[in-house]
C-alpha cells in the first residue's frame, strides 16, 4: 500500500465533503442527546445524593443499593435491555426513550456518587453553625452544604460530564442516528474509512477543550493539597 493509497483510504477530502451532510446531521443529534441526558443524569444524581443523607435507613439503603447496581451494569447492557428486551412485554419503547431512561439510571448513579462525596467533604461545623442560627435541615442543605459540595467536586463533575458525552456514542448500537452511527453508515456506503476518521476528529475537536480544562483543574487541586 502506497502513501497515496493510505491517504485516500483514511483522509480523503472528497469523501469528507460527500459525507459531510450526513455527519453534520449525526453531530447535531449527538449534541442534542448530550443536552438531554446530562441534566437528566444530574437530576437523578442530586436526588440520590440527597436520599443518601437521610437518617432513615429505609431510605438510605435502597438509594445505596440502587446506586451500586446501576454502577455495576455496563451502560450498553442497560440500553440494549431497554431497547431490545422491554418490547417483548408489548411495551413499545423508542431508541430515544431507551437512551433517556438508560442514561438517567446509569449516569444518575455516577453523579449521585460524586455529589454524595461532595456533601461529605463539607465540614460538619458548617452544618452546626447554620443550624445554630435557626436554619432548617433543608435550608442548611440548600444554602450552605450543596453550594460548597458542588464546588469541592467540580473537577469530578466535569470529568463525569465528559464521560457522559462520550458515552452517547453507544446509542449508535440501538440505531439512533448520532455521529458514530452516521459515520458507520457513510463508511459502509463509500467503502472508505474516512468517515469514521472524520467522526473521531470531530469528537476530538469537540471534547479536547474540556479535557484541557479538566487537566488544569486537576493540577490546581493537586497544587492546593501540597
Amino acid at each position: 500500500m502506497t502513501w497515496d493509497d493510505f491517504v485516500l483510504a483514511f483522509f480523503s477530502w472528497q469523501i469528507v465533503s460527500e459525507a459531510w451532510p450526513i455527519l453534520w446531521d449525526g453531530l447535531q443529534r449527538t449534541i442534542l442527546m448530550s443536552i438531554m441526558v446530562v441534566p437528566l443524569g444530574f437530576l437523578g444524581g442530586t436526588i440520590l445524593a440527597l436520599l443518601s443523607t437521610v437518617h432513615n435507613p429505609w431510605v438510605r439503603w435502597p438509594a445505596a443499593v440502587w446506586t451500586d447496581v446501576f454502577r455495576a451494569l455496563p451502560p450498553l447492557v442497560l440500553l440494549i435491555f431497554l431497547y431490545a428486551g422491554v418490547p417483548f412485554t408489548g411495551l413499545e419503547i423508542s431508541a430515544w426513550g431507551a437512551v433517556a431512561i438508560g442514561f438517567f439510571l446509569n449516569t444518575g448513579s455516577y453523579y449521585g456518587e460524586i455529589l454524595r462525596a461532595g456533601i461529605e467533604s463539607v465540614p460538619r461545623g458548617q452544618q452546626e453553625a447554620a443550624r445554630s442560627t435557626g436554619l432548617t435541615r433543608w435550608q442548611t442543605m440548600r444554602w450552605i452544604v450543596l453550594p460548597q459540595a458542588f464546588r469541592n467536586v467540580l473537577p469530578d463533575l466535569i470529568s463525569n460530564t465528559l464521560e457522559v458525552v462520550k458515552l452517547t456514542s453507544i446509542a449508535s448500537v440501538v440505531a439512533l442516528p448520532e455521529l458514530l452511527f452516521q459515520a458507520r453508515q457513510a463508511q459502509s456506503v463509500t467503502y472508505n474509512a474516512t468517515p469514521i476518521v472524520a467522526a473521531a476528529v470531530i469528537y476530538f475537536i469537540l471534547l479536547w477543550p474540556m479535557v484541557r480544562v479538566l487537566s488544569r483543574l486537576e493540577n490546581k487541586a493537586l497544587a492546593g493539597r501540597r
Binding site: P123, G125, Q126, E128, A129, A130, R131, S132, T133, G134, I144, Q148
Partner: peptide, 15 residues
C-alpha cells in the same frame, strides 16, 4: 428557638 441562642465556635465555621 435557636434564633434566641447565638453560638460561636472554636473553628469559626464561616461559610
Amino acid at each position: 428557638a435557636r434564633q434566641r441562642i447565638g453560638m460561636v465556635f472554636q473553628s469559626f465555621n464561616l461559610y
